[in-house]
Design a protein around this nucleic acid. Structure first.
Ligand SMILES: NC(=O)c1ccc[n+]([C@@H]2O[C@H](COP(=O)([O-])OP(=O)(O)OC[C@H]3O[C@@H](n4cnc5c(N)ncnc54)[C@H](O)[C@@H]3O)[C@@H](O)[C@H]2O)c1
Ligand SMILES: NC(=O)c1ccc[n+]([C@@H]2O[C@H](COP(=O)([O-])OP(=O)(O)OC[C@H]3O[C@@H](n4cnc5c(N)ncnc54)[C@H](O)[C@@H]3O)[C@@H](O)[C@H]2O)c1
Lengths: 213, 213
DNA sequence: TCAATTTTGTGACTCCTTTCACAAAATATG
DNA sequence: CATATTTTGTGAAAGGAGTCACAAAATTGA
């Protein structure tokens, strides 16, 4: 297939297909049609086929898709087949929750370091739920440790006033991907990727829908 | 302006404008142009004007928009001018973090109840950060308390296996808006609104961008 | 008072995304 | 082996969303 720009919506749906396929695999299903997958993910069947068509041909006409193979192919496309090494910065309420989030382990996302500016209260913290204990370190060791542990993604859970400064530190440490949970827009240079997760935006959306339906 | 279907993206941007306008108001700015607001929110100026045009005329030609008025108008559009009363269900790592999330207070979102199925460990829990202490109650009191406290939005932070059942309880209690943090797709009847927040989808997105740029 | 300046609101255009519809490929059946 | 059936992959059509460009409205300044 010739090259085309891939819609961001397609990537989001691939992640959804991935989750559904995982459940199907667990359920023992071996082959599915685009219609079945579409149904499960609440999208159009042609949409499923077109999304996949951006990346190649994965199905067999008259048959469908092999669940296991398709799951693998999608993970390869998303880059979620490899293990991603992450750091959490700001070990307060939300940061602690992320540190003990079991699902990250099941997926290929692994928290391998944690930082705070006020470590005495949290230093040496260990979560049994995690495969390995993660010790909370002082933020001034970020650059050094990030390189050492080959960290690729940073999760920012500091107060909003500190978020951009922390992002700058991550950039300096060459951590290329940033997920920011503080309610402030993060800016990073070319070559880096930052995504903001605004809880209030999601709630505003809900509020709008509730007010107008 | 004649009626049109309003794009979901417009609603998301309005929320963004809202946040920027709040900062501007704090900063003492009284009037802004669509270009300035657009710049701040990293969108196109025509986009700002078109988004607003769906709902009426809010600016003055040759002048711009009055920050205070526009903020009010946007909040009215979004429905975020009123106070929304919320419940959190599943007071584990993430649920506890949400319970003590200060920003909800600053906005018009207020957590007025909390439930778990295993309350002995958490009953009577109080967060000083919140205006009023919120006691964690047993899930079997959900329907009764939801009505009593006029709850309109439910935040689900139970394990995924319980999420749909909890959503069903919320529907039964006529809580019309649901925000689900468990990694499983929630289905609700006509007239209710459910949004899923999938952390892994966001990470998959990031992984894709990091793998392909 | 009137021309110059600023900035909105919006029709028209472009670009992107989704859906439709069908030929092509694989399988099943008699 | 030929025909019917199934389901993919994809070009074409339809539908939405974003950008451009300019007339209309307000203001400023001479
Ligand atoms: N609590 C929630 O449920 C929730 C939900 C959505 C978003 N958020 C956002 O996430 C962020 C954290 O929220 P929280 O409730 O966990 O706050 P918190 O105050 O409990 O935690 C913040 C932590 O960041 C640390 N910190 C401050 N400056 C730092 C720096 N420069 N470097 C490293 N660490 C630093 C603090 O010591 C503290 O431990 C906030 O921006 C908040 O708006 C929180
Ligand atoms: N921890 C995180 O940072 C994080 C991030 C994203 C998503 N999530 C999702 O949020 C959910 C909660 O995660 P967590 O880490 O807080 O888990 P957790 O195990 O710490 O908390 C779950 C809580 O739900 C309660 N519960 C179970 N069944 C219930 C029921 N039927 N009714 C009421 N309460 C019930 C449990 O008693 C427990 O207190 C999970 O689905 C998880 O996948 C968590």
């Amino acid at each position: 297939m010739k090259y085309q720009k891939i819609p961001e919506a397609t990537i989001r749906r691939l992640s959804r297909y991935s989750r559904c396929l995982e459940e199907m695999e667990k359920g023992g299903e071996e082959v599915i049609s685009s219609a079945q997958l579409a149904n499960r993910c609440m999208v159009n069947a042609a949409q499923v086929r077109k999304d996949l068509a951006y990346f190649g041909e994965f199905g067999i006409r008259g048959v469908g898709y092999y669940v296991k193979d398709l799951l693998n192919d999608i993970k390869k496309i998303l880059g979620s087949n490899k293990e991603w090494r992450m750091v959490v910065i700001g070990i307060g309420n939300l940061g602690s929750a992320l540190l003990s989030y079991k699902d990250f382990l099941k997926q290929n996302y692994k928290i391998v370091a944690a930082f705070d500016i006020d470590p005495p209260q949290v230093i040496g913290r260990v979560s049994e739920k995690l495969g390995k204990p993660v010790e909370v370190l002082h933020i001034n060791r970020l650059k050094e440790v990030a390189k050492e542990r080959r960290i690729e993604i940073g999760l920012i859970t500091t107060p909003p006033s500190e978020a951009q400064a922390v992002a700058d530190l991550l950039v300096e440490a060459e951590v290329r991907g940033i997920l920011n949970f503080a309610p402030t827009q993060i800016v990073v240079p070319e070559g880096f990727v930052a995504k903001d997760v605004f809880f209030t935006t999601i709630l505003d959306n809900l509020a709008y829908l509730l007010s107008n339906n």
